[in-house]
Nucleic acid binder design. Structure first.
Lengths: 307, 307
DNA sequence: TGAGCCCATAAACTGGGCTTATGAGCATGA
DNA sequence: TCATGCTCATAAGCCCAGTTTATGGGCTCA
């Protein structure tokens, strides 16, 4: 899953988040002391922390001079990698804050798991930048749960992916989500020179989410005209488990491209082109039937509009 | 840049990497005790750490029972967010290890900054999974530096993005990189209904990297037929600085899509379609003229091949 | 030449996270 | 019914990483 790591836990081989934040601050300010002030610690603390980071990594990160500190060439690279960790942590933070949010939050959001996992944290960061002080609460569930919460006035705005709009709700398409066929790089399909035909896909036993998942519904519908979906090879409960099985070579699957960023980039999985099927679903914002939402819900909605 | 945060540093609002790793292990194993063993700590340590994570986040993450522990609904979501942080940290680790690598490493890689920053860590993780024990050393620089290191036999394999292949080297295209026009969401271009014309782009003053960057070369060449690139609005030294300026609304820029993942997803930046120009550049692996590399270099090369 | 930046070092404090030791709850099977 | 074996929680004590305060040295500029 996370790969059989090299003995020592990751946390012992990598600087902690505070150190990475500090490194970014040093890059921004060009000075250890100012970076320290920015983070609310003293200059010696920053100095020692950067030093221990350099010791841990075995690389000089910062060129110190009496006129300030600049990153070394290696430091620039390390800082860029650190920035990605910190950004992921910011998304975590934004999500976690919304999860903690209570019923009296100014904006109560209900979202499908996929959207809550991959898209919502980014939107919340953007919302915080534009409208700081908007308290957001988040609950996640499938389309039915989202609809229920909206209709019961337990949520102001919802997000769902899937085929239809639940009754009693109005909606706006805010984006699209392609489903893609993926296999391990060692799978025969990875070496095909021609796109997969829908009938071939339909006839193949896939590693699959359990019946009822949104992904599976869309796939079923798209392949109905091509003989219907074959019985799954295995059914697994979570997207993560599906990915792990595919990576280990157990077989092909179909997943949202949102769930595949990392795996495709690192070529742990490869995407198999398919011809003649629209494996695409709408991502929708939904709200109680009536006028477009106002206030904080409107703010968030306008952030998520494609253009 | 990182946004003016809400007072307390991120590191105090977010569990540390060790805690996130632990949470992933609990999700994998379904038991605090087994997760603890997996990470080489004792069960009480794991128990207390999960508890303090729940206290910090204000959310119950784990359902404890005498038969094991399962994630709560909120725990699943938090774990997914944590997984992304841990993955970014793994990429950091892979990159940092390569940076520390000495001259006697079995595989010496030289790469352009863009590739070293965004793609190489993922490849290194994949390489470690397939060929554990391959010691990799990394040095980063522009195309000229990469070529120089290869020709001086200080590197076994190089990666460059750009227009031509330096003399004395053989190469293989391993992927592509689209350059995209982006602005802040508030920019007038973000509300255009029709694609931008090349001549319009050429006539507009952009926020730009300094002369000599690969991105700028490609852009120059692509727009030569449309009147040539206008004088930049500002020239900045790093991609990060360019992005920050664009986000703050200073003007449009053209950047590699590799550098834009996070910003586009969170709609801090929006992509402006352009018609009739191929803003695309090859990503190439390069090596000293002669036969395809063998050994570890071959292993890495085959990982990076598109298919 | 002194003021004002920069950074490094030293010593002392603190607390979070660890371990060891123990106990309680629930299943399973003799 | 009672022992075994898994689960997790609690308590007490240790240790070290990261902190602060206090100090000093280097460079630049007025």
């Amino acid at each position: 899953m996370n790969g059989p790591e090299g003995a020592a836990p990751l946390a012992h081989r990598v600087p902690d988040l505070g150190a990475m934040e500090l490194l970014l601050a040093v890059a921004r300010h060009g000075s250890l002391g100012r970076a320290a002030r920015d983070l609310g610690i003293t200059q010696p603390a920053a100095s020692s922390r950067v030093r221990s980071m350099e010791r841990l990594l075995g690389v000089a990160l910062v060129d110190r001079s009496p006129r300030g500190s600049r990153l070394t060439a290696e430091g620039v690279l390390v800082t860029d990698w650190a920035r990605r960790v910190v950004e992921a942590a910011e998304a975590f933070d934004a999500g976690a804050q919304a999860l903690r949010g209570r019923r009296d939050s100014r904006l109560r959001v209900a979202a499908s798991m996929t959207i809550a996992e991959y898209l919502l944290p980014g939107w919340l960061i953007a919302l915080r930048a534009e409208r700081p002080g908007t308290a957001v609460s988040l609950s996640a569930g499938n389309s039915a749960v989202v609809a229920e919460r909206l209709l019961a006035d337990e949520a102001d705005l919802g997000f769902v992916e899937g085929l239809g709009v639940p009754v009693g709700l109005d909606s706006a398409v805010i984006g699209h989500d392609r489903l893609v066929v993926v296999t391990a790089p060692s799978h025969p399909w990875a070496r095909r020179s021609r796109p997969l035909l829908p009938a071939e896909l339909a006839a193949t036993a896939l590693i699959s989410r359990e019946r009822g998942s949104g992904t599976r519904q869309v796939l079923d519908a798209a392949l109905a005209a091509h003989g219907g979906l074959a019985e799954p090879l295995i059914e697994l409960a979570s997207t993560t488990a599906v990915k792990a099985a595919v990576v280990s070579g157990a077989g092909p699957t179909v997943l949202s491209e949102l769930a595949l960023g990392e795996e495709l980039a690192a070529r742990r999985l490869v995407q198999i082109p398919v011809e003649g099927v629209r494996l695409r679903r709408d991502l929708r914002a939904v709200w109680r039937q009536g006028p477009l939402p106002a206030g904080p819900a409107r703010d968030l909605l306008s952030l998520t509009r494609p253009t």
